[in-house]
Amino acid sequence: MCLAVPAEITLLDDSGQGTVNYMGSEVKANFSLVPQARPGDWVIIHAGFAISVMDENEARETLLLFKEMADASRR
């Protein structure tokens, strides 16, 4: 029900406004819902708002899991 994408924070001012970089495009975003977020963090963006801060380790593990599945089946 809710289209949202993962993007990296490129700019974040004191009022909680800023931008994210999503696949090379700049998108205006509001970070008021994720006060813990810092530039360089990856967040989930929906309707112009960051709604969640991503977990780098978990992301890496998911990637690894899929790489393993892709490789294991190939052998």
């Binding site: 029900m1 949202a4 112009g48 708002f49």
Partner: peptide
């Protein structure tokens, strides 16, 4: 219109 994902943005 929205579910919980969108509601905080609207409330803000």
């Amino acid at each position: 219109a929205g579910f919980e994902t969108t509601i905080p943005a609207i409330a803000f």
